[in-house]
Design a protein around this nucleic acid. Structure first.
Lengths: 345, 345
DNA sequence: ACGATGAATGAAAGCGTGTTCATTCTGAGC
DNA sequence: GCTCAGAATGAACACGCTTTCATTCATCGT
């Protein structure tokens, strides 16, 4: 219909549709608003003309008057990470189904979130913001984003500073205890006594929370406190540091990794370079249950964060907050559980 | 400074800043526009007041008058896929550095791109759109997005329909031949004679393009035409279908996978279930060179798509097009090359 | 057949910005 | 001390849309 030559360079506006269809511009607006009162035949005519003219309401203009941008900001430390991308995928799919578009931002590799970025994002007026405790201090989040839209993914066992800030936003709290208890119990049941915790980036709140809980559970079961291998969530570092631990430090018979990818690095170091067998010589457990964890080369036993459960909880928070902007802060809680595969016994 | 109680529910506007700083609203606008002419001390005052009031220019309003949304739409078939997420990560990082925000959309699992989605995205007025040949027919793309913003990631050896549509947008063309030639040569050099091509989703243009080139190169080298294993880019399917090929069909001594993840599935099937050795019994090559490909359990020899190269090329296209909206369609070309690891010889 | 009720309609206002454009201010040059 | 160019300033407009609000139209019960 529209060959490149005659093709209009600029978008069609409601005015053009109105003029073409011989209706008022207001009618066009109503035709696109499901709740507006307009004669059905008229709406059909308008929608038909709109389609011919390839017209779509301008979200920017619409956003200005309605106050709804239909944008949800998501701040992620590393989009390419399996866990992050898998959660991003689930959230984007769910948001899209609800009519939202995902506005994606990436933080720096050191996890620090530039305040400028937060301010910049605010300029887009997102209807909601999903931020990880990893990246941003709650006080900063509260100061910059003055609307009560952010959702903070945190951990209820955090220290005071965070607990105090809790009422400032809606939260998704992750209960780590259950999955960790199951994991430690299983490993101990198969004879593990000397544990190591393979940490993520040291300033990551997630890894800190997990480590505290792992230590607590191990202590509760009367086992010696775990050694510590400093990782950064990445495969290469986990591989190297595991090697160091066994060659230069004290070997262990169980490794609890702060994330699955780190566990893969540890497993490969043990098998490939150290000639040790997993699980016979060393038991390994990870955290997240990413798609890759069931790959046959690893078949990782891991503490699962249920993606569907998290996504639904986040969506509930967003929709409830949007429906009632002034309600006090909401909290959803998700649990964790162990998925048993082949790296323990 | 702003405790939750007194905190303003609505965002600060340029008007508020102007009144607080005792300047005109126009001055506020100029203070935030680097090229505007305004007395430096005045600008500093305004920026200071703006920061105190936590003011940021509203991108929606700004977008309406400037015609620049600072949004780049990216349409991805599966955000959670390693390759997709790694490219998304690189692009988002690069775009962010240039002042753009990523507007992320996901297509359905069958790769089909709903036209409604394209129309919806258009409503956000993205300054540019990055779409994969996988998802959208060029004619559809041209019809819906009437501004010359989309960038089409395609393959120059496609059939007429696509070539004809080429002048409609800027393109990033991927030259598959070089990497594929190197791969086939290497495998043949190590004694491979009977090839199988492990395909991706059958309606994926990438897998079709790769398969055509693989067949061509194999024929050129005087080898028998490759068998075909139908996959869908996923690990599980590759695993299962490789098993079927060896148990029910004819075994081969070399597998060329359409993507790395598929190669992993094939490798695991060969080693775990069939008791075959890689590379001694069967040689395997993948496509993409994702981070996971150098993991020791796989150490995959693969045809690399250079992420940095692609990202820079895409960015060049976007910036050039934005600088000159009416210029004829641009094309960037990226090559491929083999990364040799341990799955061939 | 007639008022009453509700649905359908269009004019006008407003959302928060950037950008003319005409005007005023500043300071250099002689 | 005066002229003149260039910088700095603010009033008004435009961007594309939704939403009041007052008005007209259709429908129904009696």
């Amino acid at each position: 219909m529209s060959d490149p030559a005659t093709r209009n360079r600029s978008r069609a506006t409601a005015d053009m549709v109105a003029r073409t269809a011989n209706v008022s511009r207001v009618a066009v607006s109503r035709a696109f608003n499901p709740h507006a009162s307009i004669k059905p035949e008229k709406r059909d005519l308008i929608l038909k003309v709109a389609q011919e003219l390839n017209y779509t309401p301008d979200m920017a203009a619409r956003s200005m008057v309605t106050g709804r941008s239909h944008l949800v900001g998501i701040i992620v430390p590393d989009v390419s990470g399996p866990w992050e991308s898998q959660e991003l995928d689930a959230m984007t799919t769910a948001l899209q189904a609800e009519g939202f578009a995902t506005l994606l931002f990436r933080t720096r590799d050191d996890l620090s979130l530039d305040e400028t970025l937060l301010t910049y994002m605010k300029g887009f007026n997102p209807d909601s913001v999903i931020a990880y405790a990893e990246n941003v201090r709650p006080t900063t989040l509260a100061r910059v984003l003055d609307r009560a839209v952010p959702i903070y993914i945190g951990y209820p066992d955090e220290e005071a500073a965070e607990a105090e800030a809790a009422p400032l936003f809606d939260r998704l709290d992750v209960l780590q205890r259950e999955g960790i208890e199951q994991a430690v119990a299983l490993m101990q049941g198969y004879g593990a006594r000397r544990f190591a915790f393979l940490a993520g980036k040291s300033n990551s709140l997630a890894t800190q929370s997990r480590e505290r809980m792992v230590r607590k559970v191990i202590a509760e079961r009367g086992l010696p406190p775990p050694l510590r291998i400093q990782g950064d969530y990445m495969y290469d570092t986990a591989y190297r540091e595991t090697l160091n631990q066994f060659r230069l430090g004290e070997p262990v018979d169980a490794i609890f990794a702060a994330n699955d990818v780190g566990a893969f690095g540890a497993i490969d170091a043990l098998r490939t370079e150290l000639g040790l067998r997993v699980p016979q010589d060393v038991k390994v457990v990870g955290f997240d249950d990413i798609h890759q964890s069931h790959w046959k080369s690893y078949s990782l036993t891991t503490v699962k964060l249920d993606l569907a459960e998290r996504t639904q909880a986040l969506l509930r928070l967003i929709l409830r907050r949007l429906k009632n902007p002034t309600s006090p802060s909401l909290t959803e809680t998700v649990s964790t559980r162990l998925v048993v595969r082949g790296t323990v016994g």
